[in-house]
Nucleic acid binder design. Sequence first.
DNA 1: TTGACATGATACTATTCGGTATCATAAAAG
DNA 2: CTTTTATGATACCGAATAGTATCATGTCAA
Lengths: 105, 105
Amino acid sequence: MPPVQSAFRALADPTRRDILVMLRDRDLTIAEVAENFEMTRAAVKKHLTVLSDGGLITTRTRGRARLNTLNPTGIGPVMDWLKYFDMFWDDRLAKLKSEIEKDKT
Amino acid sequence: MPPVQSAFRALADPTRRDILVMLRDRDLTIAEVAENFEMTRAAVKKHLTVLSDGGLITTRTRGRARLNTLNPTGIGPVMDWLKYFDMFWDDRLAKLKSEIEKDKT
DNA sequence: TTGACATGATACTATTCGGTATCATAAAAG
DNA sequence: CTTTTATGATACCGAATAGTATCATGTCAA
């Protein structure tokens, strides 16, 4: 799966986005992430795998635990794709605003 | 479904992102969008509905045709959510780069 | 070594999703 | 009015997805 697709796919689930928010504060083990959800560790592990496939997190082993960390480069493809539209949408938005202004007068 | 969720959901499918790319050039009817894919108009229509639910496009009727247009404000919630990480990830990336530089010396 | 703990992996289930086929509705053309 | 064209809506199918349950593996501590 192309990087941009796996990343968008990973971001599409609210649980996974919540996990990313948690990891912003500090690195967490699977068990620590799972404490914050009402689902099994196995389910959380699956979400972490999807996030890893999407390049949004990296994992490293520390003893018998496994730490999950935000990947600083992971959001790149997503931002690049969106910025392509952002320019266009900024332009459109400006036109929209000027239309509204024109209607007011 | 909360706006940010329906928007991320809409962006998760490659066909729907391709549709957004097409609509960047000009507004298109359902039939015109469907010409570019090897699937039925009904399938394309479903994708357009998901994009509309996500606030990424708007539709207006012109006679018996229905024009699909990029919504300039639609990407807002998505960008806002991502920017929350972008700051953080920019910071991390800077640290990562400085680490690499340090290793070089 | 033995036991406890954290994770990995697999099989299984219910739901969602992408897609097709089909029929109904509405507008333009003659 | 009748026909054609563009879309709307619904039922259905197969694949992917999110989740659980269960068992295997590996590591820390005593």
